[in-house]
């Protein structure tokens, strides 16, 4: 994939999971923490880690925020630390993608105001999941597979390339479930902005180059579909 750096602040169970997911996909990443013990732990596991004090703007610039770093994950322990890091990073780079973790629901707005692109609330995810398990366990399994791809089912997003056979077709003509054994979840129609339209059969979209399809299906079916429309050779 690209050579842009992904910086992950804070080494804990959450970032460890993220790292193991990302390293499978060969991303260029670096763990940063101001606690030497955690850095040592990360290095013992053979992960690229570096001691860094996020409070110093100079050190953030040296790291490559504003130049090399494309994505920043704020996985520090306290909400206040994450807000501080988000503020500093946003001031250095307007284009940076910042994903922050939030511990207390009140902090979510503060993080967004500080400039985070996305926030993740692990406790909310957890409680929603418990509630779902309680009321409709079969859905949880399906979502788990789709979201986290632990079995063969995956969710994938496919951008329509240039000179593709899908250019100028309508979503209602796709019939992905018949032809490719894939389930179309939604479409991003660039003519209408970046919003994801769930595919519910209410609205038809004309597909153009650059539009994004979100599909659910088995790996081999997704690969076959990508090959046919010219995403991969």
């Amino acid at each position: 994939m690209d050579n842009k750096l992904i910086a992950i602040f804070g080494y804990n169970s959450m970032s460890f999971e993220l790292i193991s997911q990302l390293s499978e996909k060969q991303h260029n990443l670096l763990i940063l923490d101001d606690d030497p013990e955690k850095i040592e732990l990360a290095e013992q596991k053979g992960l690229p880690a570096q001691l860094l004090d996020y409070r110093q703007d100079d050190e953030l610039v040296d790291l490559g925020i504003g130049s090399q770093v494309a994505t920043l994950f704020c996985f520090l322990e306290k909400d206040s630390e994450n807000v501080f890091l988000t503020l500093s990073a946003r001031a250095l780079d307007q284009q940076l993608k910042i994903i922050a973790v939030v511990n207390h629901p009140d902090s979510a707005e503060k993080l967004l105001a500080a400039g985070a692109s996305k926030i993740i609330d692990p406790y909310e995810i957890c409680s929603n999941k418990v509630y779902q398990l309680l009321t409709k366990p079969s859905i949880t399994w399906v979502l788990d597979q789709a979201v986290f791809g632990r079995a063969d089912l995956h969710m994938a997003e496919i951008t329509i390339p240039e000179h593709s056979i899908l250019d100028k077709t309508l979503t209602s003509q796709l019939n992905l479930n018949m032809k490719y054994n894939l389930f179309l979840i939604g479409v991003v129609d660039k003519e209408l902005g970046d919003k994801l339209y769930f595919s519910l059969g209410e609205q038809d979209h004309k597909l153009d180059v650059g539009d994004i399809l979100v599909v659910l299906g088995a790996n081999r079916d997704i690969r076959k579909f990508k090959k046919d429309i010219g995403v991969i050779q």
Binding site: P122, Y123, C126, G186
Partner: peptide
């Protein structure tokens, strides 16, 4: 059944890197 808040959050964050649109859907 088990629910792992930190693992779920980590996986979700990883999804954002490769597939931001799918992340929105999820």
């Amino acid at each position: 059944y088990l629910v792992q808040p930190y693992t779920s959050a980590g996986l979700l964050a990883a999804e954002y890197i490769g597939q931001p649109v799918a992340f929105e859907a999820i």
